[in-house]
Design a protein around this nucleic acid. Structure first.
Lengths: 249, 249
DNA sequence: CGGAACATTGACGATAATCAAAGCGAGTGG
DNA sequence: CCACTCGCTTTGATTATCGTCAATGTTCCG
């Protein structure tokens, strides 16, 4: 499998051969990290930022009360705070949810690459915009959907993202979230997650066993979740509309 | 008052005179928009993105059920989706919450400015990182805090942000949110907002009348909210630590 | 003065949290 | 190879926060 990070950036902007070469070099330093281990601890002043090459990780916060809220899932190809200054980035904790292979990209190297190749800078900007869109959708999810919808929506999002990077076999995907993790991602309690998960199973929507999730009726799951994948597309309708226009003219 | 957008970018990176000149030119096209009017409708393919120069606006989403969730408050100096490609940005609705003066910055002009001045590109990247941090804190807010804490936290955030741009007179600030708006920002119902607002008043924490908010005990309000302004700082402790180090050496 | 938007109140209901205990399953060490 | 543990899942009973519905007040503005 090719470098997930490179693939991701290539989706976000048109990269030439030299851009690709350069990006490949950036991911030279790699680490293997087991599940449930820190990738990043709050307060780390980072000279390099982590890029997930395989596995799942999560960015989260812990409150005084001890409650945890996951604010972002990092799937293969995702990066934490790339491009931002080391100071601005030293905010969140990042933990692995499954064994992960992560690349540490030196901050200065990335800046240099962006300066040299405008296409890389553009890709980073677009990816950052996508990140924002995903976080906005999480706010909506947690703020305005009930338990079942929330869970269904997260599953839809994750399935779509995994499919985008060819990490889903049809309607099946690796889903390493513990019920506790799931709860912390959608702002519910593990107990409630458990009950609603049973409902999703009883309604024949999903199967989830030993970190393997199957969506039996994706159409219906989208319906339940109120899921619309539009916000996950980096170039909505660019190919079609452009074509449509030229053929119409 | 100087251009709020320029001031914002200047906070995010060190800008020279020429950078400032260029940025000033970018905000040439301005519009005055009354309260509760669209700044941007979903699907608008944007050749320019809006920058709020004065007033409050909000980015939001509406669900099938009709429920609305505000995903981001745009205060003076904030911009929507700057730097991102027009396609990637055409996702959300933006509406004014008070009368606003907004500048429309041409997308190509911004790209050009970033290409020409690395400091501007850096500022944009850092601001984008800040945006992310704020959205993450919203996810935490809506996901893991109860009604009173949520409301207190939003007030703290907004107060801090307004203070940063010199738009707060001490513990007083312009707060144009309707109780409906407030509800949609923190994922509650207007009725519940009303009741908890009374509690905040009874406990002597705030006064809120005719869009004017006063925080009588900011310390205590922070306490209630579990608010820590760290995530809103673009350059956490850069001045101090650098100084500390040089003096220690 | 009249109306519209916004704020407030009350009664009731529902979704999700809490508390506590028991079951299950995979990996470990004896 | 079997008991043992530890992390995770499941279940039940009870509670509480917040939502819903509906009516009444209030303020602002033309």
């Amino acid at each position: 499998m090719a470098n997930a990070f490179l693939a991701r950036l290539a989706q976000a902007a048109d990269l030439g051969a030299s851009e690709r070469e350069r990006l490949k070099d950036l991911c030279a330093v790699r680490r293997d990290i087991p599940a449930k281990k820190y990738v990043l601890r709050d307060g780390d002043r980072m000279a390099a930022f982590p890029v997930i090459l395989s596995g799942w990780a999560a960015q989260y916060q812990i409150l005084r009360s001890g409650a945890r809220q996951i604010t972002r899932l990092l799937l293969p190809g995702d990066a934490y705070a790339f491009g931002a200054s080391a100071e601005a980035a030293a905010i969140a904790d990042v933990i692995t949810l499954s064994p992960c292979e992560v690349a540490m990209v030196a901050h200065g190297d990335m800046i240099a690459a962006m300066a040299e190749f405008p296409a890389i800078a553009e890709a980073v900007r677009n990816l950052s915009c996508l990140e924002n869109a995903v976080m906005a959708s999480w706010i909506v999810n947690v703020g305005r959907r009930d338990a079942l919808e929330r869970m269904a929506h997260l599953i839809c999002e994750v399935h779509h993202r995994m499919a985008t990077i060819d990490a889903a076999k049809g309607d099946q995907l690796f889903f390493p979230l513990t019920q506790d993790d799931f709860a912390d991602a959608v702002g519910l309690t593990p107990v409630h997650i458990n009950r609603k998960l049973q409902q999703l199973r009883q309604e024949g929507l999903i199967t989830l066993r030993s970190k393997q999730l199957t969506a039996h009726d994706l159409r219906e799951l989208h319906q339940v979740a109120g899921f619309d994948s539009g916000y996950l597309r980096l170039h909505p309708r660019r190919p079609d509309t452009d074509q449509a226009r030229t053929s119409a003219a």
